[in-house]
Design a protein around this nucleic acid. Structure first.
Length: 562
RNA sequence: CGGCGUGUGGCGCAGUCUGGCUAGCGCACUUGCUUGGGGUGCAAGAGGUCGCUGGUUCAAAUCCAGUCACGCCGACCA
C-alpha cells in the first residue's frame, strides 16, 4: 500500500485531552479521531489493527461457538423482563416517533436469551454457544483515556447455553482456555484474576487484566492466586488477644477525631483500636461496620457478606450525627439500633476502644456480645500488598486494564425470561447460561500501553497494521521506486502487509513517522546507498540496524517475520 | 451529580487581570528557491463571526449576566 493512498495524518503534538501515552500515540499517529466524548472514528490504521485482533478472537471462538450479529437497537420490553431497563444506568434510551422506547445495546443477554428461547426446545438442541463482534454503546458518566473507557466501543460477546451446571462449567472452562490463547497470541502480558460478579448477576467469574501502570483496576497476586483487589480474600488466623472483658469506661478525648490522633494520644498501635464506620444500603437503611484501626473497609466484600445487590454507601456526617448523636470521629456501635458487621480480624478481641457517641469522648473496654451484638462477622477489610493470601503467600500489587471478563450466569436470565428446555424425562428445565466478553477497542489501546518507547508504538507482529514499512527516501527516482514496489509485491504475495512511504518528504520526517507508527520492520531505501549496493533494515523493537545488499532484503525480511 | 478549570484557524499556545491600531506565535498547509539518511533554511501566501446570546461602552477576545460545550478531580461503573 502506498502512503499516498492511505488516510494517515500524523501530528507532531498530541491533543491536550490525551493523558495516557497510548492515547497520545493513537492521536498523534492518526489512528483515531474523537467525534464526541467517548466516541471515536477508527481511521484506517486503527481499523487494520482491530480487524487483526478480531481475527485472532474469531479463530479461537470458532472452536466452540457460532458467530451471529444481534441488533444494536433493542426494545424496552425485552429489558423489562429482566428488570434491567431501570437497573442499568448506562443504557442510552430513546423513543421512535410512535413513542415506543428503545435502548442502544450495551450488552446482549436479553436479546440472545430471547433468540435461544424461541428456537431451543429440547435437551437435544443443547448445548449452544453464540457470539458476536459488535459496536456497543454504554452511556458512561465520564469517558476517559481514549478507547480505554469509551461510550461507543467494539466488543466480542459470547453466550453459552447448557443443560446442567456441570455442562455450563465446561463451557466456562473452554472460554477460559480460549481467552488465554487469545491474549497470549496477541502478545500481551496479562493475568486472569478472580473478580466480583457485579450486577450482571453471575457467581463464578474471572477477569483478564493486561498489566499496565495506567490501568484503572488494582490487582493482588500471590503465587497462583490473582484477585481484583475488591474481592481479594484474607483468612483469619486466630485471635489478636483474648483478654478478659473489663468494665466499660468513658474518657475525654477532646479534639481527637482520627484513629491516628487516638493512636498517638493513647500510645496504642492502630491495630488495637477499633474503627466504626456508618453506611447505608440501597434502601437507605443504616448499618455500621467495625474494623481494626489499621484496616480499610472493602465495600464489595461487605456487599457480598450482606448479600446485597450494590455496595453500601458511606453516610454523610449529618446522617451519622442524626443516628448516633455525635460526629463521625466519636462514634461507636454500643447502644445503637442498627445492624453491626464486624471484620473477622476482631474476632476474639475484647476491650475495644471506640467512640462514645458523644462528641469529645471515647470508651474503652467495649466488648462484643456484651456491649453490642454483631449481626455478622466476616472478611470485609481491604487487602493490600504484603497481606497474606489464603495460600500463605504474600500479595503483590499490580495495576491492570480489564480486557476480558468471563461469567457463569446460572439461570438468572433464563428464569427471568422463561428460557427453558425439556429434559430426557420430558420435564421443563431452565437453561444454564454463561457470558463472556472481550473489549476489542480497549485491547488495541492496552497493547500500545504495553508496547511503546519514547519514539512511538512498537506493534506486536500479530496485530501490527502493517508488517513492513518501506521508507523510499527519493520517491522521484524511478529505479528506486521500482525496487521498492518489487519488495512490496513479493511480501504482499506472501500475505504480509506493507506500507510504502512514497511521500515527497525529507528522510528525517519519514523516519520519525516510521518510529511513531511502529511497524515491526523498516527498510530505508535511499538513492546513495542503493547505488552503492547497500540498504538499511531497522527492527523497530530492538532498534537494531542491519546493512544489506538490496537483492538480499526480501529474504532477510521474510526471515525476521517468520 | 458535586468541586475546580478551559473555550482564540487542523494541532499546541500567547493576548483577557489593567478594554484601544488591520488578533499574534510555533507546528501543519500552499507557492518559489534551498536542502536531501533522523522533524533543513529563506521568502511570499491561504486559513479565525476569539464557544453562543444579551448587556455596559465612543470602542469588547478583554468588563458584566446568562447559556452551551469540553477537560480534570471525586462519586459512579460490564
Amino acid at each position: 500500500m502506498k502512503w499516498s493512498k492511505t488516510f494517515i495524518f500524523t501530528l507532531r503534538e498530541a491533543p491536550n485531552d490525551a493523558e495516557l501515552v497510548s492515547h497520545k500515540l493513537l492521536a498523534r499517529g492518526g489512528f483515531i479521531r474523537k467525534i464526541a466524548p467517548g466516541i471515536f472514528v477508527y481511521q484506517d490504521l486503527a481499523l487494520r489493527v482491530l480487524r487483526k485482533i478480531e481475527s485472532v478472537i474469531r479463530k479461537e471462538m470458532n472452536r466452540y461457538a457460532t458467530e451471529i450479529l444481534m441488533p444494536m437497537v433493542q426494545p424496552k420490553e425485552l429489558w423489562e423482563e429482566t428488570n434491567r431497563w431501570s437497573e442499568v444506568s448506562e443504557l442510552l434510551k430513546f423513543k421512535n416517533r410512535a413513542d415506543q422506547m428503545f435502548c442502544l445495546g450495551g450488552t446482549h443477554e436479553e436479546v440472545v436469551t430471547d433468540v435461544v428461547r424461541s428456537d431451543v426446545r429440547s435437551y437435544r438442541d443443547l448445548p449452544k454457544f453464540l457470539y458476536q463482534i459488535q459496536t456497543k454503546y454504554r452511556d458512561e458518566i465520564r469517558p476517559r483515556y481514549g478507547l480505554m473507557r469509551a461510550r461507543e466501543f467494539i466488543m466480542k460477546d459470547a453466550y453459552s447455553f447448557d443443560t446442567t451446571q456441570e455442562e455450563a462449567f465446561k463451557s466456562y472452562d473452554h472460554m477460559f482456555e480460549a481467552y488465554n490463547n487469545i491474549f497470549k497470541k496477541l502478545g500481551l502480558d496479562y493475568r486472569s484474576v478472580t473478580a466480583d460478579a457485579g450486577n450482571i448477576g453471575g457467581t463464578k467469574t474471572q477477569e483478564f487484566q493486561v498489566l499496565a501502570e495506567a490501568g484503572e483496576d488494582q490487582l493482588l497476586v500471590a503465587g497462583d492466586l490473582a484477585y481484583n483487589v475488591e474481592i481479594a480474600p484474607l483468612d483469619y488466623k486466630g485471635s489478636a488477644s483474648d483478654e478478659a472483658p473489663k468494665a466499660v469506661e468513658e474518657f475525654a478525648t477532646p479534639g481527637l477525631k482520627t484513629i491516628e490522633d487516638l493512636s498517638v494520644s493513647l500510645n496504642l498501635p492502630k491495630e488495637n483500636l477499633v474503627k466504626t464506620l456508618f453506611l447505608k444500603d440501597d434502601d437507605g437503611k443504616p448499618l455500621c461496620v467495625l474494623l481494626r484501626g489499621s484496616d480499610e473497609l472493602n465495600a464489595v466484600k461487605l456487599k457480598n457478606l450482606m448479600k446485597l445487590a450494590n455496595p453500601p454507601q458511606m453516610m454523610s456526617d449529618d446522617e451519622v450525627r442524626q443516628l448516633t448523636g455525635a460526629s463521625p470521629g466519636s462514634c461507636g456501635p454500643q447502644g445503637l439500633k442498627v445492624a453491626i458487621y464486624m471484620d473477622h480480624h476482631l474476632k476474639g478481641m475484647n476491650n475495644f476502644v471506640v467512640g462514645a457517641n458523644k462528641d469529645g469522648f471515647h470508651m474503652k473496654n467495649v466488648c462484643p456480645n456484651r456491649d453490642f451484638k454483631p449481626t455478622a462477622i466476616g472478611d470485609v477489610r481491604l487487602a493490600k500488598e504484603g497481606d497474606v493470601a489464603p495460600n500463605g503467600e504474600k500479595y503483590k500489587a499490580y495495576k491492570g486494564i480489564e480486557v476480558g471478563h468471563i461469567f457463569y450466569l446460572g439461570t438468572k436470565y433464563s428464569e427471568a425470561m422463561k428460557a427453558s428446555y425439556l429434559d430426557k424425562n420430558g420435564r421443563s428445565q431452565w437453561i444454564e447460561m454463561g457470558c463472556y466478553g472481550i473489549g476489542v477497542t480497549r485491547t488495541l489501546q492496552a497493547a500500545i500501553e504495553q508496547n511503546h518507547d519514547e519514539n512511538g508504538i512498537i506493534w506486536p507482529q500479530e496485530i501490527a497494521p502493517y508488517h513492513v514499512h518501506l521508507c523510499v527516501l527519493d520517491p522521484k527516482d524511478e529505479g528506486l521506486m521500482k525496487f521498492a514496489e518489487g519488495i512490496e509485491m513479493q511480501l504482499e504475495e506472501k500475505g504480509y502487509d506493507v506500507l510504502l512511504d512514497d511521500r515527497d518528504e525529507r528522510p528525517g520526517i519519514k523516519f520519525k513517522d516510521a518510529d511513531l507508527l511502529g511497524f515491526p520492520i523498516r527498510l530505508n531505501i535511499g538513492k546513495k546507498g542503493f547505488e552503492a549496493g547497500e540498504i538499511d533494515l531497522v527492527v523497530r523493537k530492538t532498534k537494531e540496524q542491519i546493512k544489506l545488499r538490496p537483492q538480499d532484503s526480501f529474504d532477510k525480511i521474510m526471515g525476521l517475520l517468520k
